[in-house]
Design a protein around this nucleic acid. Structure first.
Lengths: 225, 225
DNA sequence: GAACTAATTAACTATCTAGTGAGTTATGTC
DNA sequence: GACATAACTCACTAGATAGTTAATTAGTTC
């Protein structure tokens, strides 16, 4: 990849410059670093290797991000921002409560499968005890909409008398997340232990339907609604 | 810790020697390495630091385990062996199917909570794509008993007509594991995002009961049994 | 008790790695 | 078109890090 790549369409308004482009340089570093950190972890990734895969030099990583930890934190923040943006696209308020739950579960299932690097970064950050994530600004607010959406669905179902009332949006979110995250994050050890590929195409339809069934069976459990 | 620690009770048959003790040296290294790898990860742990926390010298790590990867693999294998031993203690065949499932879920819940270092090693090895775990000898066989136990319970429940038949022991194992592993492994990022402590004492009873409820609601879902 | 070998110690090294010093060039501003 | 400064290049370094060389000592065997 060369730095003057974007000069292909100079007809644009104020089209990309040739030699200097701070935004693009920054983005380029972030993107490469994200792949590299997701691949090797914080301690496993090498600044020199990240720099080499970049269109710029190592000195620029330090210029823009301070140090290795600073770059890693920027990657984390960016990863969560991207995910939040994607998640904000979903709209399930027009569905019946039960169908909304199933849609949410399947969206999460698909989403995690489509973003294994994000799942890896989360696992890496948990190995790191979350010390870098807590420094990210305004993260709880970015997650609030997802919980509120789920809360509205639950409320509608509970009002209609078809969902149990002794559970919360966080409970259900955790249940769905754990299943969908585990499937992607732990597939390697699971395969080694049970010789069963959680992300194999042949198992996908069954596993995808199962999480919706599980959550709905729980929410609609006889004697609880 | 000094090396001559075990000389306290010399009345034993062929009690521990003072200066040379390969087994103890090996054990000592393994134990320290396990803590250190679980704490910092494979790439984050430092051989020098492991050695320093040992009652022996760095050269001994290489003498017994070859290199850093070899030591890490030995730690992984040992960790899985310890867990298997603990799990082999459980006996649920005398319980009713539904109560057996609940007991199994709660045992897993307690077990994972009691062994956070094991959970960390699993996460680390998944970050590493399981390349070191697949080299461990005979691991699938060590996990087979747990699956067979679960399979027997399911079979009994299905024969009695109280459990759905369109699911397998691996499905249920994965469902329980994902919940119990996630709770321990992802507590840091979960806390950072939702300000809710999955391992907090105040949430424990609810979360512990919930996984049993979830699995049983799924297995006994109306229309499926 | 001599010979043998497994276990252990201490000092050493090549390489890697995060981070920096110091200067150069493009670009917007007046 | 001189000036200021943000963006960028290149060469360098101190210290960390995995792994090694080689000699020594404690038990074991006969």
């Amino acid at each position: 990849m060369t730095r003057s790549e974007t000069t292909g369409a100079p007809a644009e308004k104020q089209a990309a410059k040739r030699t200097r482009n701070p935004e693009k340089t920054r983005e380029n570093i972030l993107k490469v670093a994200m792949t590299e950190f997701a691949d090797k972890g914080l301690t496993g990734a090498r600044i020199d290797e990240i720099a080499a895969k970049t269109a710029t030099t190592k000195r620029m990583l330090y210029y823009y991000f301070g140090d290795k930890d600073g770059l890693y934190r920027a990657v984390l923040q960016r990863a969560y921002e991207e995910i939040r943006y994607e998640e904000s696209q979903l709209d399930v308020d027009h569905l019946e409560p039960a169908e909304a739950i199933r849609a949410l579960a399947e969206l999460t299932f698909d989403h995690h499968e489509a973003h294994p690097d994000f799942i890896r970064l989360v696992a890496i950050e948990n190995t790191n005890r979350g010390v870098n994530l807590v420094q990210a600004e305004g993260l709880p607010e970015t997650q609030a909409p997802a919980i509120r959406t789920l809360d509205r669905i639950l409320q509608r179902g509970q009002d209609a008398g078809i969902f149990r009332t002794d559970t919360t949006a966080l409970d259900i979110h955790m249940l769905i997340s754990s299943y969908c995250v585990f499937r992607v994050a732990n597939r390697y050890t699971f395969k080694a232990l049970f010789d069963w590929d959680l992300t194999g195409a042949e198992n996908r339809p069954h596993l995808r339907a199962m999480i919706g069934d599980v959550v709905l069976a729980y929410l609609q459990q006889p004697g609880k609604v």
